[in-house]
Each structure stands twice: as structure tokens, then as C-alpha cells.
Design a binder for these strands. Structure first.
Lengths: 333, 333
DNA sequence: CTGTTAGCGCGTTCAG
DNA sequence: CTGAACGCGCTAACAG
């Protein structure tokens, strides 16, 4: 900026005024400065601006996702970006890869860079360390997974309720031998789904046929499903804990001796649509939109008590949960 | 920091030293300062640090993706993050949503925040405006799409060559009536694929059966495919320009009177794997890794001429391109 | 081992 | 309409 000022024979302050479109500047001076700005390739230093302007928002929010490669979070982030862009805010995204330590590092970076607000999908089990940051004025909203002992807003889907919905749908079709295929419930949301699954069966006076929590990926799910269906006393219906298991489970069902075994999965996906797999869908974009709206209402000065928003899930029947088996289906209209 | 210094009765510089683990400090003083840091919830102000330490890297790179919701870019970003994390760098991601203006805004934000380097999947047709930023010392690597008139590194997949590979595979199976289904080639990579498609047919003394560039999404592709296959003179093989069309096209083929019509798609996807669709695969993670390696070599002081790395594509036969049609297949081992 | 001085690049305040 | 001086929070260089 000094250089530009010198080159245009004005003071730094005048350059600053030109950059900020301050109106009362002679056109001749303005254009001379602008020319030098272009010629020298000057860019205002965001660090210096952020340092000088304490209090005023910097115009950027941060999103910490657990896993960017997961289409669910990708959709959520995309919705957040949309809200944020509409407000002329920049959205910076980082992902922890489900690693709590990396999450803490990244959150620290966000806070240190003094972003105006954060939306967090946390892979951590504790959040006390964020308490000081709240006081510094960083607004935080938790999405998809609740905060532990931290008074902040959060937006969640009704996981337990969604699993219950799936089981009740299968019960309504007459199924009594219903198995759960998923992974070890270390993560809060997975725990909720398993809880809802069990609760719905208990309420009907039944017990789970099987609960398999060793299906970490689609191939493990394929094996688990094949084993279940090959057994003497095979289940007549399967509940897939998450959308990453659908491919393996659907294929295993199609290859088995019981290709009409019912399948309902938690969370929608392109694959489920094409294969005609019935799902209990959350709306990732709604999750993101709500979280962003909540964050911006805080940035706008809403100081009310932390809110917790629970979004309902929707059962989408496509055939696999209604006795028509798994197969290639026409695209949804 | 002033507050911490006052509370611990030391100078600010001593606090700074404690924060940075400067070794020569009395343990008693160190722990006293640390206690006050915790008590007051102090966080170093990254803006101030970045402002003072010019020259030294700030430890963060930026990634501008065209569309975060696209699994291809999600995988690429994930690979970049992995390289970056291994170097103890923070990765900040933003996405332009294929909007050139938003891309420019976001890049400006990155540059202003003085990130150490950028990896860009550009939706813009011009990049001259970045030239000044290069001089400021921001290192830029283009990924997936080449820069226009900007002397920077870039990593690309062999799009034209990949399309050629697909066509030759189909020619090898005896197909002569091969149709292209895709979208309008506004984007560089799509243009390259169409070019490779035409070139391969021309080289064999053939012309495309049809070139449809109106398939913007999976449903449009479903319609286009259905129309093609219902015609008197239907093609015997289809080339899908991108992985988002696979669901619609596979379903249309399965529903048609010619369910064994061959299908080869550009880019791999989970869906293609499960449906047994033959693809010409690029490796998004390799793209990210190479781009990140290139960027970090620049940060390490490599001043050689800009490089252009072209990554080869791989033909993955799964049945749909080899006369076995489209159907549910076992998961890949 | 610790404190003092100066200044990173910019915006704010107050004078011209 | 424009400029000079000051300070944001922190660290490099130099003293003690």
C-alpha cells in the first residue's frame, strides 16, 4: 500500500479510501490510484485489516466437517455455502477425517484467524476446550452431532426416531425377524439409531433377530449380509445403519437364495434411488441451511438461550422394503 | 496477551515465548503464564502473527474446488488434505459452484488472507487477474483444468485420451454404431472428452452414431438414452461423458428392448461399481496428491519452470462394455 | 533467562 | 477533499 501511495504521489490513507470506495475523492486522483493498484498488483492484506477492525465482522465463517468425502456432509456444506454466499460471507471448510485431535487443531486455527462463526460436525467427545472461544466472541453452531457440555446451538436429525420409523414400516409389512447391520456405535448418531431400532422392536414385544456392528464398509456389509441370509434361521428384513452399506447389502441380497429379503437403509443416496432401496431420509441440505440460519441470527445479535433444533426424517418407500426386492429401477421423477 | 502478561506479572514477550515453547524460560514462570493463559482463555491472534511474520509460511493452504458436492472433487480434496496434514499444514477449502465470479471473490479472499499456496479447480475462462498474486508470493497449482495464459503448475487427467480408450474398447468389441451422451462442452475437460471421442471414431474411418450434448443430469440422460434406444436405427454402444449420467442411462438400457446395449462411462463411481458399468477411470486422489506435492515443492523453494503433469486414465471392464449388459453386480473385491 | 524498542499493513481520529 | 500520527496484537532484534 505504501508502494502504491508513493507511485501515485498520495498518502496511504488516500489509497485506503480508494480501496474502500470512499465517495469524496477527486476522480482524477481516484483513477490514478486505481491504475497504480492494478500496475503493482496490490492486494489489501486481510491480516492487517482483521487486526485493525476488531469488533466488526470479517465476513467469513468456518465449517468443520467430519468427512468431506461423504456426500451427506458435502450436501450439508453446500447448503451452508449457499446461505453464506447470499449474505456475502465467505465460507471456509476444513475436515477432521473423524479425528478428534485434528478437529481441535483445525478449530484452533479457525478461532485464531478470527472467523466470525463456526459450524461444527464434531468427531470429539468433549467440547469444554471451546468454552474460552465462546467468550472471545466466536459463535459456534453444532450440526448433525450434539455438543457435550457446551452451551451452544445445535441442529440434529431425529436419528432414533428415524430408525424407529424404519422398523415400524417393516413390522407393518409383517416382518418379525429383523436384523441390524452397521458399525460399532462410537459416534453419537449411530448410537441413537441403534437405540431407536431396539426400542421399536421392544415396543412390539420383539427382540432383534441379530445386531451386527462389524460392518465398517460396503464389503464388510456384503459379507455380513451373505452370512445372515445363508443361515438356517435367516432374517426376513434388514436395516442398514448407514448409506455406505447399501451397495454391498443390496448385492448380497440379490445373490442370495432369498432375493426378496426386505431392506431399509438410513439416509438416502443416489445408489439407493437407482436400486429402489427404501430409505429413511434425512435432509442434509436442510441441516446445513438451519445451522447457517442459526449462526447468522447469532451474528445479527440474537443473544437468547442456545437452541436445539431436531429435524424429522422421512420414509421413502421404493420397493426394497415393500416386498419387491432390490433391482435396477427407473430414476425418480 | 497484554492481559495474560499483566496477570502473570511478566512482559508480553515472555508470554509470547511460552506460547511458542521457547526453551530458555524458568519452569516456574512458564507454568504461571500457562495457568493464566488457560484461566483467561487466551488465543493468539492469527492475524497479528501473520502480519508480523512476513516471509515465513503461515502453515495453511487453500483449495478452491468447483463443486464440493461432487464426489470426484471431494476425493481430490481429501487427498490434498492428507498430504497437507502430513506436513502439519492446515487446509482451507472453498467452492465456487462453477461460478466464475464467485471463484474470483474466493481467490481474492485466499490471497488477502495470505495463505501460503492455493490449489485451484477453475470454473473461469481467464486467469490473467491472478498474475499479480503470483508476484506477491502466493503459489498456485491448477488441478483438473488447465490455466489460461498463466505460468503456473498444473495437474490434469488425459481426458481426450481416456475417451479414445473407451471408444477403442468398444470398437474392439465389434461396435460400429456408438453414441455420445453428455452435456454442452463449455468446460475444458468436457470438450477434451468429446474431442477424443470423435478422434477415435475418425481414426477408425467411422462417424459418431449420435452426439447428444443436452444431458445435463441423470434424468435428462435417462430420457436421451430411452429415445436413442427406441429409434429405428439404435446405437449398439453408448459413451457416458460423466459419472452423474450413469444411473439414468443404465436404467434406461435395462428398461429398453436392447438391455445388452454396451455402456462405457467416463470416471468411476460407486454406482458404476455396483451396476457393473465399465468405466474409464481417472484417479481423483492421485490428482490431489500430485497437485499438493507440486505445491509443497514450490513452497520448499523449487523455482523451476511451471510443470504440466498429465495423469493417465485406466479402463475398468465390468461387464456393461463387454456385452454382459447392466445389472446388479457383487462388490469389487 | 527476561524486558524494551520498533514496526508488520492497515484504519481511525483529528488536523489541515 | 487530503494527510499525519497513533495503535490493533504480536514478534525480531537487541539489550540487560
Amino acid at each position: 500500500m505504501r508502494d502504491v501511495a508513493a507511485a501515485a504521489s498520495v498518502s496511504v490513507k488516500t489509497v485506503s479510501r480508494v480501496v474502500h470506495n470512499y465517495p469524496f475523492i477527486r476522480d482524477e486522483v481516484r483513477s490514478r490510484v486505481q491504475a497504480e493498484i492494478r500496475r503493482l498488483g496490490f492486494r489489501p492484506n486481510g491480516n492487517a485489516v482483521g487486526l485493525r477492525q476488531t469488533g466488526r465482522p470479517a465476513g467469513s465463517i468456518g465449517v468443520l466437517a467430519a468427512d468431506l468425502a461423504d456426500p451427506f456432509y458435502a450436501g450439508m456444506v453446500s447448503a451452508i455455502e449457499q446461505v453464506s454466499t447470499a449474505r456475502s460471507f465467505t465460507t471456509l471448510v476444513a475436515s477432521s477425517g473423524e479425528d478428534a485431535e485434528r478437529e481441535r487443531t483445525l478449530l484452533a486455527t479457525f478461532v485464531e484467524r478470527r472467523l466470525d462463526g463456526l459450524i461444527v460436525v464434531s468427531a470429539d467427545r468433549r467440547h469444554d476446550h471451546l468454552r474460552p472461544d465462546l467468550d472471545v466472541g466466536t459463535h459456534i453452531v453444532f450440526a448433525d452431532r450434539p455438543p457435550q457440555r457446551l452451551p451452544v446451538d445445535c441442529v440434529l436429525a431425529a436419528h432414533a426416531d428415524g430408525a424407529r420409523q424404519a422398523v415400524e414400516h417393516l413390522l407393518g409389512q409383517g416382518h418379525r425377524a429383523i436384523a441390524f447391520v452397521g458399525h460399532s456405535p462410537a459416534i453419537h448418531t449411530a448410537r441413537q439409531r441403534l437405540r431407536g431400532f431396539r426400542a421399536a422392536l421392544t415396543a412390539a414385544g420383539l427382540a432383534p433377530h441379530t445386531v451386527r456392528t462389524d460392518a465398517l464398509d460396503t464389503e464388510a456389509a456384503h459379507r455380513a449380509t451373505a452370512e445372515l441370509l445363508a443361515a438356517e434361521d435367516a432374517p426376513t428384513a434388514l436395516f442398514a445403519d448407514n448409506p455406505r452399506l447399501v451397495g454391498g447389502m443390496a448385492t448380497a441380497i440379490a445373490e442370495s437364495a432369498a432375493p426378496r429379503t426386505a431392506l431399509v437403509a438410513f439416509d438416502d443416496s443416489e445408489l439407493a434411488g437407482v436400486l429402489g432401496v427404501t430409505v429413511v431420509a434425512q435432509d442434509p441440505r436442510a441441516l446445513g441451511t438451519q445451522a447457517a440460519d442459526l449462526l447468522f441470527s447469532r451474528l445479527d445479535g440474537d443473544h437468547s438461550r442456545p437452541r436445539r433444533i431436531i429435524l424429522p426424517t422421512t420414509l421413502v418407500p421404493r420397493g426394497s422394503g415393500e416386498g419387491r426386492g432390490v433391482a435396477l429401477r427407473a430414476t425418480r421423477s
